[in-house]
Design a protein around this nucleic acid. Structure first.
Length: 462
RNA sequence: GGGUCCGUAGCCAAGUGGUAAGGCAUGGGACUGCAACUCCCUGAUCGCUGGUUCAAAUCCGGUCGGGCCCUCCA
């Protein structure tokens, strides 16, 4: 498999430490509010990545954190704490907020057919890990204490900006409004590992530490959780592009400072979903959640389809036109697949399996992978072979291509529909088309769509 | 100011040197009592401009337009 590595700025051949257990860490959400579909785009990409690795023969051990504490809106100890803000907004405790939004995140995550990682760990349950790391960093003099907080000393590293081509003296501090420089820091890029003194003394969650009662900095949690669950040699670390700097840059600094050797070989980042005006955010424009799409009558999987039609490293602009487009295409695809019958036959499908694998192995070229799916449907293969391939591809695509609509109709409704269809067919025979159309409309109003096929009349219940 | 990415038909989009995949929409046709579904047909010299080359959407330069990052973010 070839994948783009942010560390080298190139597409590279993927070589894991151990092909029998690829380790993958993906940054999770801060659970202070609902996730919007832009947030979820990254998780769709990560899911496709994980499943592609599986499809290509690599078992994956994946871990994800849940940020449920002290995520300040800046490393300078300024701005607001997201969790506290969420709690205040809803008059609940931080833990209640975390619990509620973790659950709703998981619901949305799974509605998009993302596989929930086996290892998911909240930041608040790994405090001892962070303390262990910080202690070692202090011993090695890679960290220092100032103003009651523990900071990482970025000047001790030969190359702090490994992921970006930033040059420190050319960077502008406070490009964004509301960012102030923390006077305790020795270097501009230093960041907090542990807070005891903060503008946010009303922090609800605090723990004892060698440096006093306080709470961890944001970046340390991913290093701690990752090393705790996946060991000290990580194959893949994923996240959204916005995490490249400073979050992932800082993770590398502290993890490698702690370990004393290279930590993770492949850094893979997903691009953003934008709206017409640029970056999507929770505070401006329409707050696009999975639930909102559902309220508007969209199947969340249509959104997944829309994402797969694009490339994870390309910005995608959300519009209802694009989503409608995807919805239409997805429905047509389902119709075609459902006409294939139920038998599966593997023999003779190797060529297409190979093509599909090649598309995935080429830096996750999902739109090409979808094209191969269309090629299969148009090919001269037998229906059973096509069906086998669709089933196989859907292990990665996860578009519910073979999931029949499991509408459990009660017998009464079913009998009613059959009776109406019978009446309509009778009317058609007698060329009483007005009556036939009336029956069809009557059923349609109840969400039942009639289809006349060569083998008789079928129906679909919405 | 620094960094980085992108610009292919109405829309989504593949293609990184050999003469433009695929999907949706549109228009036409087959099927149907009509419709839906399905099937067939239907469209672009690749932002603009120089250059390299026998050959460029693909490489190099310039230019225009747009996104993102430079301590909230997926």
């Amino acid at each position: 498999m070839r994948i783009y590595n942010t560390l080298t700025h190139r597409v590279e051949e993927f070589v894991p430490h151990n092909p029998d257990e690829v380790t993958m860490y993906t940054c999770g959400p801060t659970v202070y509010h609902f996730a919007h579909i832009g947030n979820l785009r990254t998780y769709i990409f990560e899911d496709i990545f994980e499943k592609s690795l599986n499809y290509l023969g690599y078992p994956v051990k994946r871990c994800m954190n849940i940020t449920d504490v002290g995520h300040l809106s800046s490393d300078s100890d300024t701005g607001e704490d997201k969790m506290l803000k969420g709690a205040k907004r809803e008059h609940k405790s931080v833990l209640e907020i975390a619990d509620f939004y973790t659950k709703s995140f998981r619901t949305d995550f799974e509605k998009l057919n993302n596989r929930w990682p086996a290892l998911v760990s909240p930041a608040t349950q790994n405090i001892e890990e962070y303390i262990k790391i910080i202690e070692r960093l202090l011993e090695k003099e890679l960290a220092y204490i100032a103003g009651g907080n523990v900071y990482f000393d970025t000047s001790k590293l030969a190359d702090y900006y490994v992921l970006t081509n930033h040059k420190e003296d050319e960077m502008v501090v406070g490009v964004r409004a509301g960012v102030e420089e923390d006077q305790n820091k020795r270097n501009q890029a230093d960041f907090v590992l542990w807070f005891t003194k903060s503008k946010f003394d009303d922090q609800e969650l605090k723990w004892d530490s060698p440096w006093g009662y306080g709470y961890p900095g944001w970046h340390i949690e991913c290093s701690g959780i990752s090393m705790k669950y996946l060991g000290e040699y990580l194959d893949i670390h994923c996240g959204g592009v916005d995490n490249i700097f400073p979050h992932h840059t800082n993770e590398i600094a502290q993890s490698e400072g702690f370990l004393g050797h290279k930590w993770c070989n492949y850094w893979v980042h997903g691009e953003h979903l934008n709206d017409q005006s640029g970056k999507m955010s929770k505070s401006k424009g329409e707050f696009l959640t999975v639930s909102l799409l559902e309220e508007k009558g969209y199947n969340p999987i249509s959104y997944r389809f829309m994402c797969l039609n694009s490339h994870y490293r390309k910005q995608l602009v959300f519009s209802y036109e694009a989503l409608d487009n995807a919805t239409q295409a997805y429905q047509k695809l389902l119709n075609k697949v459902r006409a294939l019958g139920t038998e599966e036959k593997e023999i003779g499908t190797e060529e297409y399996q190979e093509k599909f694998k090649n598309a995935l192995a080429d830096d996750l070229n999902t739109s090409l992978a979808l094209t191969i799916l269309y090629d299969v449907l148009k090919s001269n293969l037998e229906d059973a072979q096509k069906r086998f391939l669709v089933a196989s591809f859907d292990k990665v695509l996860s578009l519910n291509l073979l999931v029949e609509e499991e509408k459990t109709l009660d017998g009464e409704l079913e009998a009613y529909i059959h009776q109406k269809i019978e009446e309509r067919n009778q009317a058609k025979k007698e060329k009483d088309y007005a009556k036939a159309d009336n029956i069809r409309n009557e059923l349609l109003e109840k969400g039942i769509t009639i289809k006349d096929t060569r083998d008789g009349t079928t129906y679909e219940v919405k």
